[in-house]
Every structure is written in C-alpha cells, then in structure tokens.
Design a protein around this nucleic acid. Sequence first.
DNA 1: GCGACAG
DNA 2: ATCTTGTCGC
Length: 238
Amino acid sequence: MEIPSPPGDWPRTEAEALAVQDELRRRVDETDHSPAPGASGTVVAGLDVAYDDARDVVAAAAVALDAESLDVIAGATAFGRVAFPYVPGLLAFREVPALLEALVRLREQSGREPDLLVCDGYGRAHPRRFGLASHLGVLTGVPTMGVAKNPFVFTSEEPRPGRGDSAPLMDGTEEVGSALRTRDGVKPVYVSAGHRVSLRAAEAHTLSLARRYRLPETTRRADALCRAALLEVTTRDA
DNA sequence: GCGACAG
DNA sequence: ATCTTGTCGC
C-alpha cells in the first residue's frame, strides 16, 4: 500500500505552524449552527487517530453515526506519514492531513456531509483559542466541537457527582470550556466549542452522544476503527 | 532555567 | 499517543 506523505506545503517548524494558526484562527465562527442534539435524521461523525511513530505511520478514522439511535452509518480510514511532531498547542498539524483524507472517504462512502464533527481533543480550549476542533472546522466549514480526556493546562472546580453536572474550564479568568460529567461518579470529560458550535450546544451534544460510557460513542467508534486499521497495516509485511 | 503539557 | 497484567466491580 502507498502511504502518502504530508502535503509539500505543510508546516515543518513550530514557527511556521504558529503563523498558519494565527491566520486561520481569525476565521472561526463562534455562533451555533449545530443540529439539535439527538435529532432524528441528523448525522454526527467521530474522528480519531492512532500512531506508530517508529514506523512513521498514522491511521485516521472517521465514523458517521445516526444522532438519534447512535447506530453506525458508515466508517472510513486513511493512512499517512506522521506530518508533525507532537507539540502541545500544535496537535492539529500532526493529525489534520490524515483526518481530512478520512473525511473525504467518509463523504464518498456515505454520500453525504456530516452535520457535526466531534474531535478527540480541544477546540476553543487552547492557548491561542484554536485547537484541533477549531482548525478542522475552519478547513471543512462543518460544525465542530472537541471532547478531551484531560484538562490540558486548564483548571476547573470539581463538578458535582452526577451525570450532566459541570464546572467551567478556565484559562485564568476566561471560560474556555467545560468539565462535564457524563456518568455518575466518573471523571468528567473536557468539552469545548469548535467552529459554528457553541459551548452550551457542545455540552448537550456530548451528553446525547455519551449515554452509556464516559466518552461519546463517536470517539469510541473512531478510536476502535483507527486502532484496528493501524494494527492491520502495521502487522503485515515488515 | 526547570517542569507541565490535548493526542 | 504508546508501553503493559492483573484485578475489582456492575
């Protein structure tokens, strides 16, 4: 199989990536254009990536779910060379090329554009307010939001213990997201707005998508798919 | 200068 | 992210 290299014009240094980020961040739309959470007939896509740094391979997955039933409608994968090292605050430059390719394939396969993209990471909760979810939203125009498993550099009070309880995620005195409990007594997830999705809507989408497990079904499905894909491509030949 | 730090 | 066994609990 041919594993594509990153685009020739992809940033190669932190300085170049920061410049791109500074340019794209101005295009973020903060108003909410996301569908009603759980609405029938609407499609939500989950995105995730798995790596084999030693072999310089990245596997991305995009999985489309029916927002009401959470049934899987379609799934697509894409492979690539690792496009950028992991630098906190520049995660998008590592994951975006493969994710975009997976999204193209998902659209081809399902015959329609998702109504909402759920990313594994942050959107507005970012040192420069432009995390992976914001970045992908600006590039695709599709409403995006981020759900992360860790608070990154941000802080919050402990949310009350029940599902649906939340506490503001703060960068100093600015609210950049939400620590949201999706299951009783379980560690919260960290939700933030992306492009064309408000924080309040992102919280509602998260609760609608995480009915049984801590993480949204979208990211669980995407995670399973990209790991399986990576294992398959990495396990054959030498 | 020394850690911390989404995935 | 990834390296990794067993174990406690619903």
